[in-house]
Amino acid sequence: MTGASPARPAGEPGTAPDAAPDAGPRPAPLLSVRDLRMTFGKRNGVRAVDGVTFDVWPGETLGLVGESGCGKSTTGRMIVRLMEPTGGTVVFAGRDITRLGPRDMRPFRRDIQMIFQDPFASLNPRQTVERIVSGPTRLLDRRGVIELLETVGLGAEHADRYPHEFSGGQAQRIGIARALASRPRLIVCDEPVSALDVSIQAQIVNLLADLQRELDLAYLFIAHDLSVVRHVCDRVAVMYLGRVVEIGSRDAVYNAPAHPYTRALLSAVPVPDPEVELVRERIVLPGDPPSPAAPPPGCSFNPRCAMARDVCRTEAPPLMAHGPGERKVACHFAG
């Protein structure tokens, strides 16, 4: 548990566990997540999220990457309060929203929205696009809906149709329009383009980028595709087995990864260039990601880590500042 008290979200430089990069005065973070935890099941529970800490500033995109099952979606769901955390705090715009009841939570529900991976599964097949976008509380009238549809690249002619009449990319646009209806300040995007074709993926990425600029949105962008994340994010957090193992500015993480896992992850991503692929150094990690039900003792990456030494098997490395700037790494031998 970090010392950050919910009443005083990490805003001031120095106390902020995740301080601003250019040391200049930066506004307080929009979202501060502190030591967030989620354990499923009572006896020998699955520690899906095991003490996650990060900030998201207004108007920026924080990428959350990691392999399947490392706890990305669970983290996202706890932030929008689709799930109750079993520990830690979520502070939004200076207010601890972790334990708010449904009534007090309502204004925050408008501020924090979510976009999902499967565009169809998240749209009610029996509602028209207009109903879906205007939401259960009918936030918007028809004109507002049409305006919003145009914002996301659809048109008035789509308002009366049903989800099944759309392609995957269009359905995702509807999902985005719905998320925008309440004029949120933060959108948690859980793998918003993973289910889409490459050419459509680019369209949605562009749309999200345009919306961010126009509406001053902040994104928590959850994805397993590191190439996409490099394109959309300002900062990146890498998760492994329920923990953040490295967090920092995009360029720092991608150009000089400091955690052995980040390095392996990046080197594993195939690059669409055969000549690069031919000469590229590639770290092929042995084994599979371990299960969060039985994490290895010490550094949870140690069974797959080429650099692991004795201390790694006994002591879990804390997330600590690494080098200049805001980068933090959880490794005894970060380099």
Binding site: V198, S199, Q201, A202, V205, D225, L226, S227, V228, R230, H231, Y254, N255, L266, S267, V269, V271, P272, D273, P274, E275, V276, V279, R280, E281
Partner: peptide, 25 residues
Amino acid sequence: IFRAPRHPYTQGLLASAPRLPAGGA
């Protein structure tokens, strides 16, 4: 295909694919 794509679709596909720093090159 990667150095000299000739079809507009191939070109579009390559251009739309995000990529990592090409490590070295």
